[in-house]
């Protein structure tokens, strides 16, 4: 589904990604771990289409299309979802209206008819229940006044509404307590199908106890330096990133 080939990217002239290659197939969950500054969030931003980053070489194919040639909203409509690390607040724009616009765009791109208001409401309620989000919050402005946990649950709520083919979760666990972590992970797991895939970016291993990956990659200094099964995450937990760095040198 997703094929990244020798991707190099920089921001303001500083190279961050220095040759990333990765293949993700339907039904798979890939975890990307790495110390701070390794380029994890950059990878997520580049895949989502953030214009501040410049791709200097390499290619990314998604569903057979050249992903890098598309603007952010078109990548989204094709089925890419980014769960932001720091979801932004949008005052005055209710979650309901925001979702209405996003869902309409995605369905149009997929050639599906518009949802009736009743259908839409039904889906919203189901999605909210999935992440134990109080339905009253839906009338509030996007993320305005939300706690960290509520913001992250709101991301998964949106994921449930948009049903992406590939979800990229950027440090979804940062700032979450155990309960919020459980709810968010449960939501992600329940949305898994044999047709979709996830890239879970995290600094800590504990998220991966809940969202069990098929493959774990270690990102260091802009490159994937090691890949393995889910045990690799546990190794990192006990031995730390220094172990990886030492074994490379």
């Amino acid at each position: 589904m997703l094929e990244i080939n020798n991707l190099h990217a920089n921001i303001d002239g500083t190279p961050i990604l220095k040759g990333i290659s990765l293949r993700v197939s339907p039904g798979e969950v890939h975890a990307i771990m790495g110390p701070n500054g390794s380029g994890k969030s950059t990878l997520a931003s580049v895949l989502a289409g953030r214009s501040e980053y410049t791709v200097t070489s390499g290619s990314v194919t998604f569903m057979g299309r050249d992903l890098l040639a598309l603007p952010a909203e078109e990548r989204a409509r094709l089925g890419i979802f980014l769960g932001f690390q720091y979801p932004v607040e949008i005052p005055g724009v209710s979650i309901a209206n925001f979702m209405k616009a996003a869902v309409a765009a995605r369905r149009a791109a997929m050639g599906l008819p518009e949802l009736t208001p009743a259908e839409f409401l039904k889906q919203m309620r189901a999605a909210a229940a999935l992440v134990e989000l109080d339905p009253k919050l839906i009338k509030r402005a996007v993320n305005e006044g939300f706690s960290g946990g509520e913001k992250k649950r709101n991301e998964i709520f949106q994921m449930a509404m948009l049903k992406p083919a590939l979800s990229i979760l950027d440090e979804t666990d940062s700032g979450l307590d155990i309960d919020a972590l459980r709810i968010v992970s449960q939501g992600v797991n329940q949305l898994r199908t044999p047709e979709n895939a996830s890239i879970v970016i995290t600094h800590y291993q504990r998220l991966l106890d809940y969202i069990v990956p098929d493959v774990v990659h270690v990102l260091y200094a802009g490159r994937i330096v090691m890949s393995g099964g889910k045990e690799l995450a546990k190794d990192l937990e006990t031995k730390g990133y220094d172990w990886i760095i030492k074994s490379l040198n």
Binding site: G92, F98, A105
Partner: peptide, 20 residues
């Protein structure tokens, strides 16, 4: 960008934000 990543085009996104 948040709006765009949810599939909302730039003009619609500006409209949403301005209305907000």
């Amino acid at each position: 960008f948040y709006c765009k990543q949810r599939g909302i085009g730039e003009e619609d996104a500006i409209g949403l934000i301005v209305n907000g």
